[in-house]
């Protein structure tokens, strides 16, 4: 399962909100995962249809292009919650206490600003492809089978809005830590040392190993 070890929890309001949001985020991430799975099934159907029955799947490319945003965006907030978006932590790893929370706070504030702008920009991108007066409300359609593109474009501002909520929560979390001088604040991803991080990943893998009936033999 996901590495949520890096985010502490308690009974406080912010932690409860964190938990609520996490449930939504996990559901969205699972949608991403299921979309990858259906991409696989779609390809198998397409290849099978084409090679075995000489019946190619109409609009195969169109469907893939529709599925990609589902895969790429729905889990974005889930990844931010765990602090798993890649970064260079040489500098922040050397910081402690209020200095660290200040850096983190500025960082999430900037990201929040960016995401608010991108919600606006991607919403306007959606808006240009949507027309109440048109058939299927479509003002932009895919090349071969004329699928309306607006649903896929709408996913972007939706996913980015959820991320913005997450960022607001993290602004609150880091801000609180900064003002109160907390050592182990809840609801924000804490920096693990590189080793601890790797240990978490390894643990994840060993957890995965348990239920697998292994076909290799032991000496």
């Amino acid at each position: 399962m996901a590495t949520s070890a890096a985010v502490l929890e308690d009974g406080s309001l912010i932690s409860r909100l964190d938990g609520q949001l996490l449930r939504i985020e996990q559901a969205l991430a699972l949608v991403s995962g299921l979309a990858v799975f259906s991409l696989m099934v779609l390809a198998v159907v397409s290849v099978g249809g084409r090679n075995a029955f000489n019946a190619p799947l109409p609009g195969y490319v169109d469907w893939i292009e529709q599925a990609m945003p589902l895969i790429a965006f729905m889990g974005i907030s889930y990844v931010q919650r765990d602090g798993a978006h890649i970064r260079m932590d040489i500098v922040v790893a050397a910081l402690k206490g209020r200095a660290l929370w200040l850096f983190e706070l500025i960082s999430v504030l900037l990201i929040l600003l960016l995401m608010v702008a991108l919600v606006w920009g991607s919403w306007s991108h959606f808006g240009r492809s949507f027309d109440f007066a048109a058939p299927l409300w479509s003002r932009d359609s895919s090349i071969d089978i004329s699928l309306p593109i607006w649903p896929a474009k709408l996913l972007v501002p939706v996913a980015f809005s959820v991320l913005s909520l997450r960022l607001m929560l993290q602004v609150w979390g880091y801000g609180r830590a900064l003002i109160l001088g907390l050592k182990h604040p809840v609801a924000v991803p804490l920096i693990q040392s590189a080793a601890a991080q790797a240990a978490a990943e390894a643990e994840q893998l060993s957890g995965a190993d348990n239920g697998t009936a292994n076909s290799g033999t032991e000496d």
Partner: peptide, 16 residues
């Protein structure tokens, strides 16, 4: 489900 969630997580990270 774990495999799918982990796939989603890594994929989203890369696409972001």
């Amino acid at each position: 489900k774990s495999a799918l969630l982990e796939t989603a997580k890594l994929t989203v990270m890369i696409f972001t």
